[in-house]
Each structure stands twice: as structure tokens, then as C-alpha cells.
Design a binder for these strands. Sequence first.
DNA 1: GCTCCAGTTGAGACAGTATCTCAATTTAGA
DNA 2: TCTAAATTGAGATACTGTCTCAACTGGAGC
Lengths: 159, 159
Amino acid sequence: MSSRLPAMVQTLRDRGIRLTAERRSILAGVLTCGGHFDVDRLLSHFRHQGVQVSRATVYRSLNTLVEVGLLRKIDLGDRPSLYEPIEGREHHEHMICVRCGEIIEFVEPEIERLQQEVCRRSGFEPLDHTLQIYGVCHACNCKDAAEECSDPARAGAGG
Amino acid sequence: MSSRLPAMVQTLRDRGIRLTAERRSILAGVLTCGGHFDVDRLLSHFRHQGVQVSRATVYRSLNTLVEVGLLRKIDLGDRPSLYEPIEGREHHEHMICVRCGEIIEFVEPEIERLQQEVCRRSGFEPLDHTLQIYGVCHACNCKDAAEECSDPARAGAGG
DNA sequence: GCTCCAGTTGAGACAGTATCTCAATTTAGA
DNA sequence: TCTAAATTGAGATACTGTCTCAACTGGAGC
Ligand SMILES: [Zn+2]
Ligand SMILES: [Zn+2]
Ligand SMILES: [Zn+2]
Ligand SMILES: [Zn+2]
């Protein structure tokens, strides 16, 4: 896991970005949290570890990491944004369960290609895109079905 | 344009939603603004027209119109959400120019189908999705090119 | 038209995410 | 070590959007 830290440190060095204690903590925290995390998750991680990093610095550093291409920001609109490490990961999009918050990644090169194609047709130069599918994950669907079976009186109330 | 107003009014009636003066103003404003508008645009439209509708009511009514299916909300994350009338319009997605704010719509059924396919494979029940492509529109790209030509000294500074 | 009340409104408080300010501190290079 | 410039932290601030609650009103019923 943390074997990626030196590479990330080097990336910052190469960009002339100073390696403060806070940024080291944040790099480590990012790798520890992994997956998809938000600012609060990172901050509570720091609190548990007794690491001192202010909220402002966390926001600033995450923005910096996004800028240098180490992190990807997933903008969810109303909810707090999520972040995920990019290094060595294939470009993917997300399905987000509105019940349990589960995040499922998917890769669909044909969708990516079609987006390029659409842009080409319009003379539009794409820089970034967001594709999120909101819905109910398999587990939550199964749970719903089980509850309806054990409580038939409510079986019709969900629609 | 405003010929759609009676139909929208009827939709509210059918749902038992009261037709207040404010809601009439908002329906009219929605049709006047048309295209893709945000809350501020609607509010300034009302100011210009001397129409009194509070911010809270605008937010509330827009949410209501989304709920009854007359309006679609486009969640842009950091920016204020956009709204667009749905009636009679084909489902589409948006390209958004980060320079001039221009919004270009596109329809790509194959992308929609692939999303369904991806969900099916994961046992994920899709309820909603967002697909926005951010980039530079054709007009802005041309403008950039023209400026580089007339100001060759800066030709290399953009990358 | 009049009455009545549940639904609606408005002003401003409030919630939540994220950025900004600026004095104090720290990094990194000479 | 010394210094300039970058960075940090605490709190203010910006901004979108929702909530509170007293006052108001649409529209059904008479
Ligand atoms: Zn779920
Ligand atoms: Zn992901
Ligand atoms: Zn443009
Ligand atoms: Zn549109």
C-alpha cells in the first residue's frame, strides 16, 4: 500500500511543491483511506491517529493532489466530494447506491469512445467528464425483497 | 412558447397542487427562460419584471416541478444547478464549455443502453444518472486560435 | 359571495461544503 | 545559518440550498 508514497512524494518534488509535514500526513492518509473517501473521513482518520492537520490544509492539499494528477475528485453535487488515488488505476466511472452509499466502479471503454465521438461531431474539446449512476445496489435490493416477504402487509407500500 | 403553460397548470391541478400567484409566475418564468437556467437567472428575471417571488419559494417550486416531472434538474456539483423544461423533449446529456458557459445538448442512445447493460451486469437498479462533458466549445477554440495568431509571442504560453 | 383550513409564502435563520485572509511558521536552496 | 517564498491554521467568509414559523391564501363547500 504505502509503497506508492515515495512515487507520490517524487511527483510533488518534481513539481516544486514543498514537502511539509502536513502534506506527508495527507499523502499517507490518502493511501490509508484508499478507495473513495471524503474530507471528513480523512480528518477523522487524522484525529484518531493524533495527527494535526487543519481542515483548510486538507482541502488545499487535496486540490493540489488533484492538480498534479495523483488524485481524482468525484463531484457528487449535494454530497461532499469524494477522492480516489489515480496511480495505476484504469479510468472508470461509478454507480452509487442511494440506500447504503456503496460505490461500485465500472469500466466501459465504449462509453468513453462514444463521448469522444460526440465531442468530435460538435467540435467540442473535452477536458473532463462526470458519469455517475445513482440507484439501488444488489445487496440493498435483496434486503428489500426479504423485508417484503417477512412483512407482506407492507409489500405494496413501496411503489 | 407559453402555449405549454396550460398543460403545466393542468399537471399541477391533477396532482392537487395549489395554483398560487407565485407558482403561476414561476411556470411563466420557466417557459420564458427556457433552455437551461439557474435560480439566479429566474430571480433576476422576476426582478426585471417587477414580479414578487421569494428565493425560498423559487427553490421550493422548482423542486416541486422536478418532482411532478415538468422540470429536469442538472446537478453541476460546484456551480449552481441548472433546470430545463422536460415536456416533449428527448432525453439528452450536456457538454458544458468551461470558457463561455455555453451548453450543448447531445443524444446518444448507445451510451444510455450501455449504462443499462452495466447496471444489469452488477445487479444494480439505476434510478438516475448524470453525464456531463466539460471542455472548450468550438467557438471558444476558434477564438483562442485567432488570438494566438494575432499575438504570436504568447503562442506557446497556453500549454 | 362567504367561510374555513390545509397548503403556501416570506424573511431570515440555519446547515453544509468549500474557500479566503493574514499573521505566524516552515521549507529548501544559497 | 540565513532568507525569501511557500505554507499553515483559526476563523471569517462565500455560496447554495433548506428550514422555521407566523401570516396569508386558494379553492372546496356552502
Ligand atoms: Zn446499497
Ligand atoms: Zn473509483
Ligand atoms: Zn465556449
Ligand atoms: Zn438540456
